[in-house]
């Protein structure tokens, strides 16, 4: 920008605005870490819960304690990652802020779903899958990342499939949906981020 005051035409103006918005979206796109972290933790917890409940024959309440392990590992790891990222990136951006709000609302709704279903002795899995599908769909739309949108569809299909499955099998449906809805988009986000940096 050597020219002190280069006057723009409408096309150039739009290009500058688009470039800035693309930069903001890219910064969120680089957050494949959370999908991989939570994806692997959820898959591990689903399989462990299924094993203890359906194969080892543990009482359901005892078997479901594996989810506490997921929270104990996942929450500090996610917080440390965000703390380190915050130190590297001096500026926040609106896209990232909205993205964060979507997942904050997801977290609160998730806690409520777990509380409401467990106190009514209902499997929380189909409701969680529906909610995850919602959050993943919005996230995918916000950053224009199609694999997340398809991941959300996988979550919703798994939620419907739970109608015909036993409560233990819900966990296997959740594991498969998490691979498609979290892990696959997470790896693709990371791949895209690496390509963008090359």
């Amino acid at each position: 920008m050597e020219n002190e005051e280069k006057i723009l035409n409408p096309q150039e103006s739009l290009r500058i605005i688009r470039e800035t918005i693309d930069l903001a979206k890219r910064s969120v796109r680089e957050s494949g870490f959370h999908y991989l972290l939570w994806g692997w933790l959820v898959v591990a917890a689903c399989i462990a819960n299924y094993y203890f409940s359906a194969i080892a024959g543990w009482p359901p309440q005892k078997a479901s304690m594996v989810w506490l392990g997921m929270v104990v590992v996942g929450v500090p790891a996610a917080m440390i990652y965000e703390w380190r990222r915050g130190k590297q990136e001096k500026v926040d951006n609106v896209v990232r802020e909205w993205y964060g709000k979507v997942w904050l609302a997801f977290g609160i709704s998730l806690l409520l779903i777990i509380l409401l279903t467990v106190t009514n002795s209902i499997s929380p899995v189909p409701f969680i899958l529906t909610l995850v599908g919602f959050a993943v769909f919005i996230s995918g739309y916000m950053i224009r990342f199609q694999p997340l949108v398809w991941g959300a569809v996988a979550m919703w299909i798994a939620a419907v499939a739970c109608i015909w499955l036993t409560v233990d099998q819900h966990l296997l449906a959740q594991a498969v949906a998490t691979v498609l809805g979290y892990l696959v988009p997470g790896y693709l986000l990371n791949k895209q981020s690496r390509t963008a940096h090359d």
Binding site: E5, K6, I7, S13, I16, T20, V95
Partner: peptide
């Protein structure tokens, strides 16, 4: 806002605040 530099600054601040 029709200046290249001013629009770039404003666009950046619109997303970064």
């Amino acid at each position: 806002l029709l200046s290249q530099l001013r629009l770039a600054v404003m666009s950046h601040l619109m997303v970064a605040r």
